[in-house]
Amino acid sequence: MEQSATGRLYGVGLGPGDPSLMTVRAVEVIAAADVIAYHSARHGRSIARSIAAAHLRADHIEEALVYPVTTESTDHPGGYRGALDDFYEEAAARLAAHLDAGRTVAVLAEGDPLFYGSYQHMHKRLAHRYPTEVIPGVTSVSAAAARLGEPLVEAEEVLTILPGTLPEEELAARLAATDSAVVMKLGRTFGKVRGALERAGRLDEARYVERATMKGERTGSLADVDPESVPYFSVAVLPSRVAPLTGGPKPASSEDPGRGEVVVVGTGPAGPLWLTPETRGALAAADDLVGYTTYVDRVPHRPGQRRHGSDNRVESERAEFALELAKRGRR
């Protein structure tokens, strides 16, 4: 007797929340699946299921994968991580039973399945055992930039994506050293993230996006947000520093006498790999670079930033020039 073929596993990205942002491929896979699986908290409500609800059928077998814990408080002998590992193993075993029976299983995931998604824990346990396809989805990062209506990164700018669960000192160092950034997983971490942005000197640039594309969406300046009102599904955004061509916020490089300053930084002995996070942050925030040409040339080029290299025998003239730029509001 021939052994029946195993089923196929799909990780289905649903996008940031608005069902109309699901891809055609995601809808096709859901329609063809035998089993629809989705993660939820203990209250039983699943955001992923609600996004895909219009495409679910009465004859779909549904597997609700309910997290046993949603905070780090647990009496599990292995602690929070142990409780989650056991849950992922049990959830994977439930899906494997369907796959072994020849059923097609679609695991629904908000955003993109492999971007901070619960699906990835199923993928790591099952993809090497069964035919698997991952359907990419629009991430909350892209949705947040779209809802703000501001470019996220341009030209040679660097985008850094951070979980808000990092220590405040680590967040501050990374935020100071990058061009653009998105900080995920706010909620209870909001106060710490706000503090890190302030320490990095970037609070004034920071934008806030809550429930992008979903009911209850809110956007605005992060500095104005009440920490008690922030849910988990919210992000902090540092948009592109490249000045807009028309309209929009006042460019960061506008000459405002009240914001000018001179910052003296050391660039280390041998280029970008030797820069400290504080130096990277100061260089990224600068409108103008003034210095010995050999040293200025070691600094990566940034769109809109002016470079003023000169001979190493004109120290006093360089200092005077830098002070004059600062008087005009340049950094």
Rank of each mutant, 00 (worst) to 15 (best):
Y119T: 06
E2F: 08
Y67G: 01
D297H: 00
F115G: 03
V134D: 01
A109K: 01
E210M: 15
G78E: 12
T189K: 06
E62D: 06
Y232P: 00
H39T: 11
A91C: 13
L56P: 03
S316M: 07
E261F: 09
L126Q: 01
V209C: 10
A58P: 05
Q3P: 07
V237Q: 08
G248P: 03
D224R: 03
V69L: 11
K185M: 09
L197M: 11
M22K: 03
V66N: 00
F115N: 00
V153F: 05
S180V: 14
M122D: 04
H55Q: 15
L203T: 02
Q120M: 12
V262P: 03
E317S: 11
T139I: 03
Y119G: 10
F321M: 03
A144E: 11
L283T: 09
T70L: 04
A92S: 15
G258D: 15
H43F: 02
E255G: 10
V69A: 01
V225N: 11
G291T: 08
G258S: 12
A92L: 06
H76T: 12
E198S: 08
I61Q: 11
R302M: 12
R49Y: 01
K185V: 01
G247R: 03
Q120N: 02
I161V: 13
A206K: 10
V27F: 00
S73H: 14
G117A: 09
P16T: 10
D86G: 07
S4N: 06
G260K: 02
P251C: 06
A236Q: 11
A196D: 09
T104N: 09
L159Q: 04
E72P: 00
L273M: 05
Y88L: 00
A127T: 02
V158Y: 00
E28H: 08
R94F: 09
R302T: 10
Y80H: 14
E154M: 06
L186V: 08
R330P: 05
T219C: 13
E317L: 06
T71R: 13
A91F: 14
A176K: 02
A33R: 10
A33F: 05
P19M: 04
Y38L: 04
P269V: 10
V314G: 07
Y119N: 12
T219Y: 04
E255T: 10
A37N: 09
L186M: 09
A173M: 09
L95D: 12
R57P: 01
D85Y: 01
A155L: 15
E62V: 11
P257C: 02
R125M: 06
P16H: 04
M22V: 05
G117R: 00
S73I: 12
Y80E: 11
D112H: 15
K250Y: 07
V182K: 00
A48K: 07
D85R: 15
A92H: 15
I161A: 05
E324Y: 05
R318Q: 10
G82C: 08
H301S: 13
L148I: 13
G201D: 12
I61E: 13
V27W: 01
L245T: 09
D112S: 07
G11V: 08
I51M: 14
E169W: 05
A172W: 10
S118N: 12
A243Q: 06
